[in-house]
Design a binder for these strands. Structure first.
Ligand SMILES: NC(=O)c1ccc[n+]([C@@H]2O[C@H](COP(=O)([O-])OP(=O)(O)OC[C@H]3O[C@@H](n4cnc5c(N)ncnc54)[C@H](O)[C@@H]3O)[C@@H](O)[C@H]2O)c1
Ligand SMILES: NC(=O)c1ccc[n+]([C@@H]2O[C@H](COP(=O)([O-])OP(=O)(O)OC[C@H]3O[C@@H](n4cnc5c(N)ncnc54)[C@H](O)[C@@H]3O)[C@@H](O)[C@H]2O)c1
Lengths: 209, 209
DNA sequence: AAACGATTGTAAATAGATTCACAAACAGGG
DNA sequence: CCCTGTTTGTGAATCTATTTACAATCGTTT
């Protein structure tokens, strides 16, 4: 699928991998890397790395490789990571709370700015420094807080309804933790985080030996 | 990639999606479904569903569709989900604890049977009903407990070392939560659960409008 | 018992992704 | 300043996945 501007989606999905490996290399003191070396590190062919990058420009130097800091800068720019993204968490149960206090988002430019629940016993509580709002007020508050991304952590049986509300309120990117593959319009991008699904495809290879 | 027996990996990765949708349909009281209807539900073409299933056999009836309960049974069998899998959790910090007490694994046949850490302050503690063992004793205890799958929830900087140890101890399937793409031999399957990577590819589409 | 509408399973065609392979470009050394 | 050893960027070739298209089959209706 080439959902946008001619760059295949598989390519975009690999860029964060490159980014992470390069950031690691930079903090280990390396300056330059070849597609060959990066490929070994990530178990990807060098040609694939070069072709992926070629969709966006010419970032390397023949005979040398890529300047790590320069490539990092360009990848961050391409992925839109040279800005901070405001995130709303919907569903402040056990998982929602741990997402709100997960320290891995902020350093990557994702800031959880507000949290929502529908349970009157939870609304008004403070979780991880955030006051929990009523999900009924989502549209208004999300606009005020400039929310661009929603993380869904509600029970599976209400996930579709919650996502429908998010879509109606104009959200274009959703990270869904509920074990439910939800329907969204084509202009809304949804990613599922689901450890059970990952396990279920690995068991195929474990059992079919 | 057709890593095993001629069935493409993309196909195997879609089966758990089918499984989940069918289980949902069954519990809603449906008996039969056509590839057309299932495709609408999952946003997949009917032909893809039929072709995917055809790698494993002929499960449908012309003119009718698929018996949901029969197809569920076959999919569970194909994926190796008609047995219980024993899982070890490595790294009993905040995330490790929440994995141990996550109620979503058991009903799907994944049983967390033991937990490991390297911190002497954590080893010996009880978490979610499990005594935390020293990771140094992994090989011995994992064999005794018949562990088949390991879940890694340690800091990124030790993830590769931990995974090397797991591989040395004979694990063939790893679910990795550490934000690090780790290297494993070709016979060891690893899946990463990484919300940041998911977010980072969605921002491409948000910013590049 | 024949005719009908629905739906599968799959071979062939199309579309898409990856890899190959090499000319062009660069750094370093003689 | 030219030669050597690298490594990029990319068209063309290959490989893989998806979609098309339809004969075969099934239950139902007439
Ligand atoms: N993917 C993962 O890694 C993972 C891990 C754990 C849990 N989960 C899933 O995440 C979801 C939440 O799990 P949990 O353990 O936090 O459950 P939980 O019951 O502790 O929390 C769910 C929260 O959602 C709220 N909620 C319910 N309906 C709502 C609505 N319509 N609008 C807003 N909020 C609503 C509830 O009030 C509750 O606070 C479940 O679907 C669970 O299966 C996924
Ligand atoms: N993918 C996700 O959704 C997600 C969410 C949260 C955290 N994480 C990641 O999961 C990991 C753990 O996060 P956390 O918040 O639980 O951290 P934590 O520090 O609370 O826990 C890490 C645990 O690992 C243990 N450990 C360290 N070295 C070890 C070793 N060599 N062998 C065995 N155990 C060892 C530590 O003693 C500690 O108990 C981190 O890498 C974090 O980035 C991922």
């Amino acid at each position: 699928m080439t959902t946008h501007s001619g760059v295949p989606e598989v390519v975009v999905d690999r860029l964060p991998q490159y980014l992470r490996a390069l950031a690691q290399l930079e903090s280990s003191g390396f300056d330059v890397i070849s597609s060959q070396q990066l490929g070994e590190l990530l178990q990807v062919t060098p040609a694939q790395i070069r072709k992926d990058l070629s969709y966006f420009g010419r970032f390397g130097k023949q005979g040398r490789g890529y300047s790590i800091s320069h490539l990092l800068e360009r990848l961050r720019n391409i992925l839109g990571l040279d800005q901070t993204w405001n995130v709303a968490v919907v569903g402040v149960g056990r998982l929602g709370r741990s997402i709100i206090s997960y320290p891995g988002f902020e350093p990557e430019g994702f800031r959880v700015v507000c949290a929502f629940d529908s349970d009157p016993a939870v609304v008004g509580q403070v979780a991880g420094g955030l006051t929990v709002y009523n999900f009924a007020d989502y549209a208004e508050i999300a606009e005020r807080e400039h929310v661009q991304i929603a993380i869904v952590a509600v029970p599976a049986n209400v996930a579709q309804a919650v996502i429908d509300n998010l879509v109606a309120a104009g959200v274009k990117s959703i990270l869904n933790y509920a074990p439910k593959s939800a329907l969204t319009p084509p202009d809304v991008r949804i990613r599922n985080v689901d450890p059970v699904v990952s396990l279920q495809s690995m068991t195929y290879y474990l059992s079919a030996v």
